[in-house]
Amino acid sequence: MKNLHVNFCGVAFKNPLVLASGVLGVTAPSLSRVIELGAGGITTKSLWREPHPGHPNPTMFGTKEYFMNAVGLSDAGLVKGVQTMKELRERTKEPIIANIVAGNIQDFGAIAEAIAELSPDAIEVNISCPNVESEFGKPFACSRIDAAAVTKLVRANVGDIPIAIKLSPNVESIVDIAKAVVDAGADAITAINTVGPGMRWNIDLRTPILSNRVGGVSGPAIFPIAVKAVYDIHAALPNTPIIATGGVNSGRDALEIMMAGGTLVGVGTAIYYHGDATWKKFTDEMSQWLEKSEFETLSDIIGIFHKA
């Protein structure tokens, strides 16, 4: 029986599926249960240095084709973040990716330094949330200079811990941004954050459904956009591992986005469609496919489309 092991920046994952940031991430018991249900690793909610309230409800809704959210990165701040990380480490031996966020470059440095002390297996730097623009302006992921500046400071503050920079698809060239952050010291790229932002209204109430009026789009509808972003980044940076995420909704989707260049696969909105069964369902599909294939290990499929 072939296994689904992959290695990401020197960290061993029992399978490439990782819980994407912002889903089921409020507490350690919630995150560790995702591991019990079969995820290869988990990504925490975006951790802030100071408490950050997020937006009022409604903050999310879904349709068959897509999902929208504008949670606004609610978090209780560093004290609770540290507590959650410690409790999580006690509850699971599987890899923990700590996702961090800040409103300015200096705060990115500070939160990175504080979180690095807890020795997460990797740090994912969220510079691409589309839902806090009214508060902080355009995400750092929209500018090569800003994205590189954040990367450089985080890199300097976290020792040997691998860092992945989470990029936005809502830019002229995601590849240019990816190159800039890798030049600045990023070990990996997470692609993609949600698309848009988009907007939906209730026609009877004549009110935008999300309290933030706009929100990031995820779910099956954005999968083609994610595949292309991952494909393009891998083509330009073949030695940079990618956490490929965006609309992955089956085991076959996970295999496809790995073949485009993903080493790990972020899974978030799929839980809306498949519930707790998501992890086992997807890994079963992947195992069955791999078993019948000519590949000996799952790592052999990473970026295989580029060799076609």
Partner: peptide, 21 residues
């Protein structure tokens, strides 16, 4: 309860189970 349908994780109890579902 924030989302009500098992995504946000606000309503989990200490076993990790979601009270909205």
């Amino acid at each position: 309860m924030k989302c009500g349908f098992g995504i946000c994780g606000q309503c989990v109890v200490e076993t990790g189970e979601k009270m909205c579902q």
